[in-house]
Simulated assay, not measured.
Amino acid sequence: MSFTEPVRKYILSCIVALIVIGLIVASVMANNQDEKFRIDETLYNNAVQLQSNGDLDGAEEAISQVLKHQPNSEMANYVAALTNAQNGDLKRAAIYMQKVLDINPHKVEDPRFMIQLGEIFVGAEKYKEAKIVLLRCQESQWSLEDFPNYQEHVAALLTQIENL
């Protein structure tokens, strides 16, 4: 079967048209995605700024907007946990910290995260989970440059749990 010259041109024109249409659609979709990302990034940065300035209610509202669009964002969940902990809602903070750990299981190797997780679990009265986390901190013999009493703090939290 052979194609005539006009049929070949028609087939080639259709292929080129499909490629151009595909590129236009991809470009439009990418621009929409970029805009959503910019909005989420602005909200996230705003939440962090509000948190550092002490406006915890504003930070909580901003980070909840980010979490509506990106519920599996490790950093957004982490900021939400810290903000809720600072606001005194330790049960909600524990949920967010657990979600961070679910999203990134390697956080168990981060000494700062683990001590914060242990403190939040103690405050949320999740003593069984807190004991597991704090024993991990103790067994790992971690220390932080800016937290020289890390192991003493872990031991104090474990003692607090044992006395309950």
Rank of each mutant, 00 (worst) to 15 (best):
E5G: 08
E5T: 15
E5P: 13
P6C: 02
V7I: 15
K9M: 02
I11A: 09
L12K: 13
C14L: 12
C14K: 09
C14E: 00
A17K: 00
A17L: 12
L18S: 11
I19R: 05
I21Y: 02
L23V: 04
V25W: 09
V25E: 00
A26P: 02
V28W: 06
A30C: 00
Q33A: 10
D34W: 10
D34L: 09
F37M: 13
F37P: 03
I39C: 00
E41S: 13
E41T: 14
L43P: 02
Y44H: 03
V48K: 07
Q51W: 08
N53P: 00
G54C: 08
G54D: 01
D55A: 13
L56K: 06
G58L: 02
G58R: 05
A59G: 09
E60W: 09
E61K: 15
E61I: 11
S64M: 09
L67S: 06
L67Q: 03
N72F: 02
S73T: 02
S73F: 05
S73D: 10
S73V: 05
E74C: 04
M75T: 10
A76M: 02
Y78E: 00
Y78Q: 10
V79C: 04
V79L: 15
A80D: 01
A80K: 13
A80S: 14
L82G: 15
N84A: 14
Q86H: 05
G88K: 14
G88H: 10
D89P: 06
A93F: 09
Q98A: 14
V100N: 10
L101V: 01
D102H: 11
I103Q: 08
N104P: 04
N104A: 07
P105F: 00
H106D: 12
H106K: 13
V108E: 07
D110Y: 07
R112W: 03
F113E: 00
G118S: 08
E119K: 12
F121G: 02
V122M: 14
V122H: 10
G123C: 10
A124M: 11
Y127S: 10
K128G: 05
A130C: 07
A130P: 08
I132F: 09
V133Q: 08
V133M: 01
V133N: 03
R136V: 00
Q141T: 07
W142T: 07
W142R: 09
W142A: 08
F147G: 05
P148K: 02
N149F: 12
Q151P: 11
Q151N: 09
E152K: 14
H153C: 06
H153T: 15
V154I: 14
V154T: 12
A155P: 05
A155Q: 15
A155L: 11
L164K: 15
L164C: 03
